[in-house]
Simulated scan of single mutants.
Amino acid sequence: MRTVLADARRGHPGLYGTAVAMAALALVTATLAVVDQRELLGAPLWFKPLKFAIAIALYGATLAWILSRLPARAMWRAGWVITAGTVLEMVIIVGQAARGVRSHFNTDTPFDVALYSIMGAVIVVVWLATVSIALRYLREPVDDPVTASAVRLGLAIGLAGMAVGFLMSAGDAHAVGVPDGGPGMVFTGWSTTGGDLRIGHFVGMHALQVLPLLAAGLAALSGRLDEATRLRVVRIAAAGYAGLVALVTWQALRGQPLIAPDAVTLAAFAALVLGTGGALAAVLARTPRRSPAPTTV
């Protein structure tokens, strides 16, 4: 863990510093959620800033680590753009929460409209800056194909997850089939009565962490699994993960709560699990058995 954090700090001090600051902000907003019992749209007022602080902390730290795998100072401008954009986004979210009003989809006053418009423009810029990092990483020579594949696929799925946010902006709501602010799941607030696009947004974005962590776990099994097998496992897992993002987004667009899937959704999920599991089992079954190292007496 210390090595990862050191790499992240070296990769981009701005993104690393943002991650540290957001981790601290998460503690502050968690405390405020306990002290300040106000609610907004049926959810505790400070839960949204808390969730965004955690998400941006993970996002910033991951991107900083990714940049550490590129040549020194490569894509630093993109990193600083993302740093400035995410900080500005959080300033608006926290400021609006302090006022007791919504930050997203808020058109109540000209001031709220202006802030929401700024947030929309900023997130587009952040998304494009992340695209530029992904494109650079695609053409960068690598000495570890398994980790490189995990990062590339994580970036691609993460960008798709971020793009689900554009669907929310287009509809001026995250809920589908029901108004925003209805009954929701604990902490996440995801709708329990209709579809919720935040699910696909959340699951997709965290491919940035899940797939590299999978590659790291597989590296620990390098004595049992050869590089080709580990690479296939990462690719199959990424395909399954992308399928999950598509599935929960499709479910939300049909106005269906995550916890109340219909038969069609369940069948699609079963096919996804069986297909991914079967592919992984087939790859592992074909893995050549490595003989244990000889011992000497």
Rank of each mutant, 00 (worst) to 15 (best):
H104R: 08
I92K: 02
I133V: 15
S103F: 02
V35D: 09
T86F: 10
A150N: 14
L32Y: 01
V28I: 10
S132H: 14
V124M: 14
A134C: 07
Q37W: 08
A57F: 03
M22V: 07
A150C: 11
V113P: 00
P44V: 00
L115C: 08
A156M: 04
L135R: 14
A55Y: 12
V113T: 01
T109Q: 03
L41H: 11
D112H: 05
V164E: 07
I82N: 02
Y116L: 00
D143R: 15
G79Y: 01
L115T: 12
V91R: 01
M22H: 12
L32W: 05
L88I: 11
I66A: 14
G165M: 05
V34P: 03
Y116R: 04
L128R: 01
W46D: 01
A160Q: 06
L50D: 10
S68W: 13
G120D: 07
A61H: 07
G158D: 01
R69E: 15
A61M: 11
L128M: 04
L159P: 09
A150M: 14
M22R: 10
R102W: 02
A53S: 15
V151R: 08
V101C: 06
D144E: 12
I56W: 08
I56R: 08
M119I: 13
L67V: 00
L115P: 04
S149N: 13
R77V: 04
L63H: 06
E89N: 11
D144K: 08
A53H: 11
Y137P: 05
Q96R: 12
P145V: 15
K51V: 13
A156N: 04
R73H: 13
V125S: 06
T109L: 02
T107C: 01
P44S: 02
I82R: 04
Y116M: 01
L155E: 08
F166K: 00
G60E: 11
V81F: 12
T83F: 09
L128Q: 05
E89P: 09
W46N: 05
F47K: 08
A57R: 14
P145L: 12
R139Y: 05
L45E: 03
I54N: 07
R139Q: 04
V101S: 05
P49Q: 12
L45A: 04
L128T: 10
A114L: 12
W80S: 14
I118Y: 00
V124D: 10
A160C: 08
A30L: 13
G95M: 09
A134R: 04
R136W: 04
V101K: 11
I133F: 05
A129C: 01
E140D: 07
I56H: 05
W127G: 14
V87T: 15
T86W: 04
V142P: 07
A53D: 07
A160T: 15
R152F: 06
R69M: 13
R99P: 03
E39V: 15
I82M: 12
L153D: 04
